[in-house]
Design a protein around this nucleic acid. Structure first.
Lengths: 332, 332
DNA sequence: AAGTGATATGTTAGCGATAACAAAGGTGAT
DNA sequence: ATCACCTTTGTTATCGCTAACATATCACTT
């Protein structure tokens, strides 16, 4: 920066002002400086800047997976909300593991984000502690944790799954099965299974039919294999709820391979309203979740919280509930 | 850090040493320090550390889209290669726009990454200049640019598309169409179209049948609509090559809606070997690209380059060609 | 002409860590 | 007992920037 200052014949402070906006600077001086910057190929060193200004200009967001349009939509909502705020989004992916999440929380915190957004409300003990002491706004998303760290933007996965069961019940299905992964690693998936069980009980359907197969998040292929097991174990099953649309699609194609008409032989429903569900043939019944909105709302909440902290106001913990809805399609 | 030092009864330098590895420190002292760190909930400030040590400990990677399993695989390959090196991957997504890429290059460079990985070889003028002067290793991936910035890990999208055309020719198809997006925004998509045209010419098939529809990357739904246009404009078309598997799947379901047997009435091929192509019914012929390997190789190359620069050795520009292969399936 | 206020620029002192060197303490050989 | 050498810890001086305050300049008022 002092090279630029020398070249432009000003002090480094003036260069610093010229390179950020909002500072009062003569337009001639700014031009001189910009020319020098251009010629020298100078790029501001933000780590030094943040050290001095105590503002790093970024927000950390941890999502389970990159390759999932649901979380990608949430990330997009976040990005859009942050647009124009001068904050950048830094993504980390946890691969559905809370241990990996803990690592990421720590490495993000080391870089001093101005806020941190995590997916879900279940963390390792140390991860939870890190979040509690983060000293910046924390937002948990995609869930309604019983004891949130602070802010929440999400919905109840269990309730959403219940709604789906009730919809199937309304369509006359009684022998309803559930297909999901083998562990509780995907906590939202586990909540959906819980919702399935609760709804079945509430409707007086005693016989649950649950297939746990594959490490979450389960793939299309695994969805197909899980369906095969489901009908093998309970040949009378009338409908299958899958933990996500991807596995639902796999289940659907397994039926097609067997030349079983869907929904006549067996109905299939998914979760998440991925594009594939509205595009497949037949189209797949699913639960639409307002993924983009989760990100958007989290972003706006986070801006309010940062603003509040900067003004040394106390910011009340907020919980924003987002919508979901059963989207009835051809597969049921 | 001085709070921790005071609590542990040592100097800040000793704390600094205890929190990084490789430094010689008495085990008793380390324990005392760790206890103090724990009690105070202290987290190292990396921006201060990097300012001092001139090592930021991260690598920037820019990919077009989060929600694309191909790039997600590349990101995974990169992450795996970086495992244990002490470097973290910071992802940015360009949304298939080189203008957005330019912005991201600059904001990444401000944070002083130790290397930068970009997707594709086409950049804005200023983006290119920023990369040329980055002062850290630059790797372009997923492409073989005619004038690379420095290192390259990729394959020729045009050649891969040519191979697919030749495969279809071998299967007896002559009236082969191509479905892609409307602009050259997705440069890899544009290269694939170019390859299609070249192969058609080389095989003496004068009549190309190209449908450009939708903003890249085109979706499943758009793939379906594009197929409708293709068969409307050229009812005699025998096979459709789609710019990606997603649009190929959309095209396939459009056929299913019309009750057209695939490949009997029309053959369909995609690009990228997404999971859906091996799972759909019928399965879809595609070009398998070694996505994970691109990331992995880029990561390894980047570690070599960083190592070289640190030792002040000159590092020769490397080009690593990755594999691709036509995967014949039921849809052709 | 002196005073007032707005605008533009410079000066100084850190931000929180680490590099580089210095010093203290302990070990074993002679 | 002395010396050389290794391990462990401390001291000092930055890293590159910006906050906060100080100063200079100019236009305009009274």
């Amino acid at each position: 920066m002092s090279d630029v200052a020398r070249k432009a014949g000003v002090s480094t402070m003036t260069v610093s002002r010229a390179l950020r906006d909002g500072a009062s600077i003569a337009s001639g001086t700014r031009e001189k400086i910009m020319k020098a910057v251009e010629q020298l190929g100078y790029v501001l060193d933000q780590s030094a800047g943040s050290l001095s200004s105590k503002r790093t200009g970024f927000v950390a967001a941890l999502v389970p997976s990159l390759n999932n349009s649901n979380f990608a939509d949430t990330a997009r909502g976040l990005t859009d909300a942050l647009q124009g705020s001068g904050l950048q989004l830094l993504l980390g992916y946890t691969d559905y593991s809370i241990e990996k999440e803990e690592e990421l929380i720590e490495s993000m915190l080391r870089r001093r984000p101005e806020a941190i957004v995590v997916t879900g409300g279940k963390h390792t003990l140390r991860g939870r502690k890190l979040l509690d002491n983060a000293g910046v706004p924390v937002i948990e998303t995609w869930d309604l944790p019983p004891k949130p760290v602070r802010h929440v933007v999400g919905f109840s996965n269990a309730e959403a799954a219940e709604a789906l069961v009730k919809y199937l019940y309304g369509r006359g299905y009684r022998k309803i099965g559930f297909i999901g992964g083998t562990s509780n690693r995907d906590t939202r998936g586990a909540d959906r299974r819980l919702g399935y069980e609760r709804a079945m009980a509430a409707l007086g359907l005693k016989d649950t039919r649950i297939i746990s197969f594959g490490t979450p998040p389960i793939s299309m292929k695994q969805g197909g294999e899980a369906l095969a097991r489901l009908v093998e174990q309970w040949p009378d099953v009338e409908a299958a709820i899958c933990v996500s649309d991807l596995s639902a699609f796999g289940a659907l194609t397994e039926c097609q391979r067997r030349k079983w008409p869907v929904p006549k032989r067996i109905a299939i429903a998914g979760f998440g309203d991925f594009e594939i569900s509205s595009c497949s043939h037949p189209t797949i019944t699913t639960v639409g979740v307002n993924c983009y909105d989760i990100g958007r709302q989290a972003g706006e909440l986070l801006l309010r919280a940062i603003e509040g902290e900067r003004a040394h106001k106390s910011v009340a913990a907020e919980t924003v509930m987002t919508d979901y809805e059963v989207i009835a399609r051809e597969s049921t």
